[in-house]
Structures are given as C-alpha cells and as structure tokens.
Design a binder for these strands. Structure first.
Lengths: 178, 178, 178, 178
DNA sequence: GCCTAATCGAGACGGTACGTCATGTCTTTAG
DNA sequence: CTAAAGACATGACGTACCGTCTCGATTAGGC
C-alpha cells in the first residue's frame, strides 16, 4: 500500500494520487485504506518516515569538518531527486495549504529530523571549534545550513550547485567559530 | 473577484477556495471566471502580483548596510503573516504539487522578484564593500540571505527570531566581503 | 431516465435497480438524477404515474354491469404482468418497508387511483341498482372488489382465475343491491 | 437472536435491520448468524413462524357463524398492529421485491396458513350451510374473506373498520350459501 | 433611438473522487 | 473446537466541484 502510494506520487503527481487510485493499484479496497489511514497525506507520511530517516542521516566523519559539511549538503540536495524526496516535497507543499498536514508532518517527521540535524551538526561543529555549542546556537546553525539549499529547491525550483553549497558550509563554520 | 479569492483563501484556506465559492462570493457566474482565468491558481497569481511586489520591495538605505539588511529580513518574515503573504505561501505550496503552478509562479512572480532582490542586495553589498559584486555572486548571496528565513517559515512553520536574522545578515556580509 | 429505471426494474428487479445503474443505463451523471429525484423510489413513482393511470382506467360501459365488472377485474389482474404493473408491485412492496415510500405512493398515486375507482364503480353500481350509492358505501365496495384480486397476487403470488373474478363481481353487486 | 431481529425491525424498520445490527444487538459475531441463516429474511421468517401461527389461528365456535367470522376478521386486522404482524408485513413487502423471499415466505409460512384458513373457514361454512364445501370453493371463499382486509391494510395503509368487516363477512356467507 | 452583438447571471450537464456503510468471506485469538 | 472479534474485497450510497454547455436578460455601440 505504501509502495502503491509512493509509486503513484512519483509517476502521476500529488493531485492524481487519489485514495481510489492507491486502492486499485494495491489491489485493495478503499475501506481497507480508511481503516488504517485517514487521508492520503497520512499514507504518504508513513511512506516517508522509513525512507527519509536514512536518506537524511548524518554520515560518520570522513574528512575535514568542511568536507563533511559540503558532502552532507550535497546529499540533502540529491535527496529531493529521489522518490522519498519527492514525497517529502509534496508533503511540504501540502503542509503550506493545510494546517493539519503541517502539524502531522511536523510531529511525524520534522521534529525528529531536526533532532538528528542538531546532533549531526553539533558534533561536527565540536570537531571544528573544539567545544560543543549550546542548543540555541546549533538550532540557528541548522537554519543557516539547510535554509539556502531548501530555498533553492523549494522556492526557486532550481538545482543545488557547488558554489552555493561551499558558500553555505563556509558561512556556517565561520558563524560557529564566531 | 480577486478580493473574493483573497478573502476566501485567508478565511478558509486553499482547499476550500473553490471556483464555485469565489463565483458565489463575488456574485458572478462561474463561466465569467473561466473567461478570464483558467484556474484558481491563476486568480491567486493575479492577486499576488500587485500586493507582493510592494511588500517585498527593498527600502532606500536608512542606516548601516547591516541594519538595512536585518530590517529587510524582518520585513520578509512579517510578510508571511499578511494576506498577500498567505497567498504567496499557498502558491508556493501548490507549486510543489503541480508543475504548471510552479512554472506559472516562477514566470509570473518569482523571476521578477529575484531581479528585485539581486538589485537590492547588490546595491547594499556595494555600499558595504565598495564595489559591485558580479551577478553569480549576488545570486549566491540572495540564497544565503533568504534561505534561512524561508526555511524557518515554510519548513519548520516557526516564527523568525532576531538571532536568526542577525546571524544571517552577518553571514551574508562576511561572505560578500570575502 | 424514467425508461432506464423501468427497464432495469423489469429486467433485474428492485434491489438491482440502483441509482448508479440507472445513471449508467441512461448515459447520464448520477448528480443529474439527484437533481430531479431524491431516491429511486421517487423515480419509479414518476414512471408509474403516467403508465398506470391509463392501465387501471375504468372503461366505458360495454355490456351488463356484471360483464363490465368482471372485465375490469381481469384488466386489473393482467396489469400486474405488464411493466407498469411490476413497478407498481415493487413500490407497493417497498411501501411496506418504508414509511416515506408509503406516504409518497399514497399521495402520488393511490389517492388519485382511489378516486378513479370510486367514480368508476359508483357509476357502474348506479347503472345496476338505479341509484348512486353514497361515498362510504362506494369505498367499501371498492375494497370488496379489489381486495381479493390483490390478495391473490400480492400475498399468494398466484394468478387471478375466472372463478374468483366472477365470485367477487357477484358479491359486490349483491352487496350493492343491498 | 430472533428477539434481536424482531426488536430491531419493530424499532427501526426493515431497512435498518441489518445483519451487523442484529449481531451487535445480540452480542454475537456476524459469522455465527451466517452459520444458521443465510439472510435477514431467513431470520425474520424463523421469528415469524411461531408467533403468527397462533395469532392467526381460527378460534373455536363461540357464537353464530357470522359473529365468529367478523371476530376472526377483526383479529386478522389487529394482528398487523402487533410485532409479529409487522414482521409479516415486512416479509410480505420484501417478497414483492425478491423472488427468493417470495418463495421462502410461501413455503415457510403462507401455504400452512392457507391450510389453516381453509380448514377454519370450511368448518364455519359447514356450520352455516349444513354441508362442507369442496376445496376449490373454500379457496375462493378464503380469498373473498381475507382480500378486502389485506387490501385495506397493505395497499391503502388504512385501518380496518367494522363496516368493511361486516360487509365482507356477509358477502362470504352469502356466496357460501350460494 | 434602434438594433445587433457581446457579455453577464444562472444553473443543468457528464464526470471523478470523496468518505461511509453493509455485504458475505476469511483469518486470528481465547476460552 | 467453537465463537467473539474484526480484517478484507466489493459495490452502492449521497455529496462536492470540476470544466463545459446552453439559456434568457441586459447592456453597449454602430448605424
């Protein structure tokens, strides 16, 4: 069922991903879907949870902090090209239109992801400057880090290029070094 | 008609803003709407164009570059609380779900706005470092500048706070200074 | 649309006559049906009104009162074999299960039909005994006349035979003669 | 379970008497019901069999044949106001809509009842005219006797009044006396 | 000042998807 | 080993909008 939803979204887009369509595709009755989820958003959230956790995870240190940071940003940029990333993008889009979706997405995914990002970036900054930044600082740094890439993709709809990634990484490390 | 669309969107949200609803509210026949616009997205784009141009304009220099930059960012953050900002947010959201909307929004609004932002930030950077940056650099700086605020609002759904604005402005000016 | 309903009822029976089926058969959208009727019972009532009026009409005198009476009873018996009669039978059946149907059938058809029957039988009795019976008496005579045939068909499900028709006619005329 | 079905039918009507509802009301699993009956009609038939047999029984002679006949007709009329009578009416109604129900009702109840009616009326006629009528005649008399009352109740939905009952009884006895 | 023609409101139409209900079959769980 | 609980595929329900399509009625503007 989650696969059917995923596939339909990637193939046909969010609007054409109807509950009836998912049911048909999955060879399942509509009622069965309603038994487990209350909307297609709910289904996609479930589909997202597994995939995205992994795709947006912070890798183990493999080079200098700067290198690791740019690598992570590139991974984030690439994520939006994958199926799970398209689901994420669709849910983000729908969250702008519907408060319930916004809340569900926040609580079902974004808050956790924020924690992972804070932990990942916090550790990286500690490696860089020698001491762990406090939580408020880390939060701010996460926004500085992820904002430009998301802006490029979600608002401008453009690809993420090296120059932006490097400038962003540089800005974050400088700000962290204070 | 544009007012009816605007009002409905602010009062009821994007999904409940139907063409039938706009027609009823405006005391107009559905067909009359279809004569001028091909979808509700088109109507909202029209409604957005006027309002947002002004609300997101760059003000004349009024203080140090740093002060002007933080002031502009605060204005951007506040914009999303206004009716026009909600229309913008809805269109941005829908653009994630629908390619046609993405194209229309880009061509009908975002590209122009990008020009205004590049011009505004370019001039400010020139004031700050004494010479005008080239276009590629300005583009990168615009992403660095606007990304974090948009990320906070669109992805996290949270308010924009002073610390983030200041850190962002600082990062942009340092990056501009090289 | 009425034809589609009629046809389906005769071919498939009452339960299989669904609004979706009628819509499909008539090449029409479901909503169009709901615009004009609020249920399939309503549609069938409309379909009945035209056809049955004529089929259950009292013919002009053509023989002795007794002959005319048996002829009419035979016509009533035959009516249930025709499409309109099957619609009537189905509506009568459903009226036993649903108060709204009972009321609608009564007001949309039976009361009128009762008037026609009272007028027809009243005139016949007047021919037979020389004076017009009062309304209460006619009503009672109508029940005596139509009861046995309906009982045979609706309760026993059997055909109407000559002996019953003749006995009924005889009983009615004797009762009328006092 | 039979009680649950009965109660639901009287309280909520035939359509609202669902197998799910009966199961819930009886604190039983749907499957358990399907083990014993193949439809709600089957359940109601079972529920009917006991009650109606008694309610529609012919009483011992207690007065003149005419008095006994009107008394029986009144009892028949009153029966439709009782719970068992409502079940009978519902089954009769459904039998008009569904051939299987018609057959089941006939074989499960009506044929037996017909025998009882023929025996009861036959005996009464014998008391009245001194000799036992043959079976064909009795059948015809039963139709003459029960038709008007059923017509009043099932078709017109009205109450049975004294005048009708007396006229019917008179007509039957005269026809029997021939 | 009249008359064509464009434009408007109203709303019917064929569709698609919605979310709900009951069906009859089936599997799982607990006594 | 039975029976409760309830998941499942199916299919109709009645509703909401979609975008297209006639309809008059009402304005204009060109004669």
């Amino acid at each position: 069922m989650l696969n059917a939803a995923d596939d339909l979204l990637v193939e046909q887009g969010f609007a054409a991903t109807t509950i009836e369509g998912i049911a048909t595709r999955a060879g399942v009755a509509k009622q069965t879907i309603y038994r487990w989820w209350k909307s297609k958003v709910d289904i996609l959230l479930d589909a997202l949870a597994d995939d995205a956790r992994e795709a947006l995870a912070w890798a183990e240190p493999a080079g200098t902090p700067s290198e690791d940071l740019t690598a992570h940003l590139h991974r984030v940029g690439a994520f939006f090209g994958e199926p799970a990333g398209q689901v994420f993008q669709a849910l983000l889009g729908h969250a702008q239109l519907d408060k319930d979706t916004a809340v569900a997405l926040r609580e079902g995914f974004l808050l956790e992801q924020r924690e992972r990002d804070a932990a990942g970036l916090g550790a990286l900054v500690e490696r860089h400057v020698g001491e762990a930044p406090d939580r408020e600082t880390v939060d701010r740094l996460v926004d500085l880090l992820l904002g430009p890439v998301h802006y490029r993709i979600l608002v401008l709809g453009g690809p993420v290029d090296d120059a932006l990634v490097e400038a962003t990484a540089r800005a974050v490390l400088e700000e962290a070094a204070g």
